[in-house]
Design a protein around this nucleic acid. Structure first.
Lengths: 177, 177
DNA sequence: TATTGTTATACTCTATAACTATA
DNA sequence: TATAGTTATAGAGTATAACAATA
């Protein structure tokens, strides 16, 4: 996973000539096999938005996990707590639909957050099938801390791709939120 | 998973006013609970590049799988075959490093592709620990077809976010490939 | 009948560790 | 001793199906 070691922290937005390496080439020694990873051409993958997005998503995900490691919160947990915090009383179905999480998966996520006393499931009076979700007092305080760390992570993103590019990215992808 | 049903195929690049919904609001009936998913505010998630990127990645991934369903090829399989096709004789380690795949995982991916007669592992003469990877004749023909379908998928992306935005996206993320 | 939360299953993917055969 | 490929395991995430309680 290249992202861990962190080379190329170029911090910027300067080098934008698509790296379309020649699809065929031979390595340094006598042999015809490029054992040096950077000599390996991507061919059609250059030009696929999905490939670039996947690599970026992996980087961003790992930076988030690393930055919030001290509080042991992962991106999905953060998104669930944020939505509950902003919309107290929401049902599990509503949270699942809003975040695009399977309702079956949300059950386990909430089990974990509830076990950590960050979230509470309260039986709904109006619809006894459903639960009203709330942050606990501790959950509210913790979320404030999580948001600080998440903002720090966001600054890492800014350093990585550049301030203007980050904003442009948010604009381009606004329709998917 | 919102993407399956497909609402908002707005095909474009027009609506870019960040949807910062008010963090608190009540639903239609007398109650105070927004059961309508679109009434639920995202709060801090708006403004996190990672959240938008994750949602976009899910959409793009699913469109790829759908578009290449007839040939039963997933994004990772496609990337592996493309790199082998462009760099015949590559070792497993070189492919794994280049694509950011764990070498342990690549073993299973290659087992599957080799079982389908698309790829062949050939024992290296120079280093008997390693395998030289090649597409079979059938694999080469198949890959051409996969590339056609992947290009079709790429057109879907273009329709979804707009031609200019897609190009800009590739530029912004070029450093991650 | 339909929906909410739940349990269960299967498969993909990430992250490790350990083993073997070579180097 | 280090590396390439392999096997194994654990957890996250996706995708389903089915069930009980309730609507």
């Amino acid at each position: 996973m290249r992202a861990a070691g962190e080379k190329k922290v170029t911090t910027s937005a300067g080098r934008n000539e698509l790296p379309t390496r020649a699809p065929r080439k031979r390595a340094g020694r006598g042999a015809a096999r490029p054992d040096d990873a950077d000599e390996v051409g991507l061919d059609a993958l250059v030009g696929h938005a999905g490939y670039a997005v996947r690599r970026f998503q992996i980087w961003i995900f790992q930076d988030f996990v690393r930055t919030l490691a001290s509080v042991d919160i992962r991106p999905t947990q953060y998104s669930v707590m944020t939505v509950i915090g902003a919309n107290p009383g929401l049902s599990q179905m509503a949270v699942a639909k809003r975040l695009g999480i399977e309702r079956a998966r949300l059950v386990h996520l909430l089990d974990s957050l509830e076990g950590r006393k960050l979230v509470r499931r309260i039986k709904s009076k109006t619809d006894r099938r459903s639960h009203a979700l709330h942050l606990t007092a501790q959950g509210g305080l913790s979320l404030a801390k999580f948001k600080q760390l998440a903002a720090e992570h966001e600054r890492h993103v800014e350093e990585k791709i550049g301030k203007g590019n980050r904003e442009r990215l948010l604009q381009i992808l606004a329709g998917f939120t």
